[in-house]
């Protein structure tokens, strides 16, 4: 899944050595033209002047970044103060994505551990069960979540009919709904890498710890967790990164008050009132944050591989 293509396996066979550059040409052509060049173009656009009906005027300016970080008053001539609006939105996104990640870890780790300790022939089936929802349309899953959590939705009906609560829980349009939505969207990403780590873990180490009178929970904390740490970190990254830039969960479950980066960016491009350079700048800030995270992660993984 995500990030998995980075290992090409051991290259030994070179049957098609003479044709390799021709074979790679189509993928390079498409990915450079439609992914890499556009990202560079986005960087350039973030330094251009905005056109009022969307689009840009080719005049270089720092206006987009200035608007992002500084407040210069209504007419733009006050001494610059820090502009908190957008920083707050970014901070809220980090916070929401972080909580969703922790929630996924709390449910995902025991699940991954449980699956990895099943008999070998049933493991694939368990993994498959966890993976299926990921392939269902994210929009449909988010809509389903909204349907379930609604004030008059099936969850509230059920809780009221059992007498647990008297009034419906108002979850939709709160931060909690967004956290639940993000958690629900990316939970499989937490389970899979942890599962892969636990499956490779040598349980003889746990048994040795138990022989030396470690309790089971001490064993889990001191022996298992350090050994499967790369998988846990991978899972956290795979949940955190897409949550950070998510659009559907905050838009459908959060309502207007729970704006996240994704909605901020979308607003600049859809509709007529948009500000393309500002949207490009916000996307650049998001991309920079994600790339830094991925770089730290790659270093961590390399270090983990180096020390067996």
């Amino acid at each position: 899944m995500a990030g998995g293509a980075a290992t090409g396996g051991s290259a030994a066979a070179d049957t098609y050595k003479s044709a390799r550059h021709w074979l790679l040409l189509p993928s390079w052509l498409v990915l450079v033209l439609v992914v890499l060049a556009p990202v560079c173009m986005m960087l350039i656009y973030s330094f251009l002047t905005k056109e009022f009906r969307g689009g840009v005027i080719w005049e270089p300016t720092l206006a987009a970044y200035d608007q992002f970080f500084f407040d210069r008053g209504l007419f733009g001539d006050d001494p610059p103060k820090i502009e908190w609006t957008y920083i707050t939105i970014f901070w809220r996104s980090i916070w929401q994505a972080g909580l969703a990640t922790i929630l996924s870890l709390i449910i995902g780790f025991p699940t991954a551990y449980f699956i990895a300790t099943r008999p070998e022939r049933t493991r694939a089936l368990w993994v498959f069960l966890v993976t299926i929802p990921y392939w269902v349309n994210l929009l449909i899953r988010t809509v389903s979540m909204k349907f379930l959590l609604r004030d008059q939705g099936p969850m509230n009906d059920f809780l009221i009919s059992t007498g647990l609560i008297d009034d419906p829980l108002r979850i939709v349009n709160t931060n909690l709904a967004v956290q639940l939505g993000l958690f629900y969207s990316y939970l499989p990403f937490m389970v899979l890498p942890i599962y892969a780590s636990v499956e490779r873990y040598n349980f003889a180490m746990s048994e040795a710890a138990a022989d030396l009178y470690a309790t089971k929970w001490t064993t889990l904390r001191r022996i298992v967790l350090p050994a499967v740490k790369p998988g846990v970190i991978a899972g956290c990254i795979l949940v955190f990164v897409p949550s950070l830039g998510a659009f559907l969960a905050p838009d459908l479950l959060g309502g207007a008050k729970n704006f996240m980066i994704g909605s901020l960016i979308e607003e600049q491009f859809k509709g007529n009132a948009g500000n393309w350079p500002f949207g490009a700048a916000a996307a650049m800030v998001l991309l920079t944050m994600v790339l830094i995270l991925l770089m730290i992660f790659a270093r961590q993984q390399r270090r983990a591989e180096a020390s067996p």
Partner: peptide
């Protein structure tokens, strides 16, 4: 390059 679309956030 091939994994790039998986690493860059979708909104970006």
């Amino acid at each position: 390059l091939i994994s790039l679309p998986l690493m860059v956030p979708e909104i970006v």
